[in-house]
Amino acid sequence: MNIFRLFGDLSHLAAIAILLLKIWKTRSCAGVSGKTQLLFAVCFITRYIDLFLHFVSLYNTEKVMKLIYISASVFTCYLIFFKFKATYDGNHDSMRAEFLIVPAAGLACLINTKFDAIEILWTFSIYLEAVAILPQLFLISKTGEAETITSHYLFAQGSYRALYILNWIYRYHYESHVDTIAIVAGVVQTILYCDFFYLYITKVVKGQKIVLPA
């Protein structure tokens, strides 16, 4: 474990917590893409499928974190699609998730390190995570604005994988560890946030709201 990966995981936890708090406190999921949250839940379940396959003795933080990610993302989906369904902005959350899931699944079958079920699921989860934020970014572009709290959520969510890139550089240099698939997908994922990062840093940090087109 290195500082970059630690802060990456903390940033990821913060993002999940910020979103849960926003929905719970405001009792509304306005401005939040339910599809993105569904895709994240699918990512966690397919990536941590080993938790379900053999008994999980909660003997280390890794297992606990995986269970937190899975339960928090499923709970977030429950809040969006059931509890606060009335506030779900389905009209603007209109990006076709199938256009993300099918290519990720296809690519996972073509480009992977080992053609076995667990590895294919892991690879699918990595590819899907890289594009899972697109429905959320699409929704913001359709509504033309993002609540400040949602901007903080996106900043934390984007920073998590950006910090993981630093972690991969660190591990390549000090542990000569390379996980090419995760690195390529992580770079693509972080690039998708660049536009938002620019808006966040030039606007939200100064107390302004993000309004599109910028």
Binding site: D9, H12, N60, E62, M65, K66, T113, W122, D179, A182
Partner: peptide, 10 residues
């Protein structure tokens, strides 16, 4: 704690 080749990150 992961056998070599396993993915040891979240």
């Amino acid at each position: 704690s992961f056998p070599k080749g396993e993915h040891d990150e979240l």
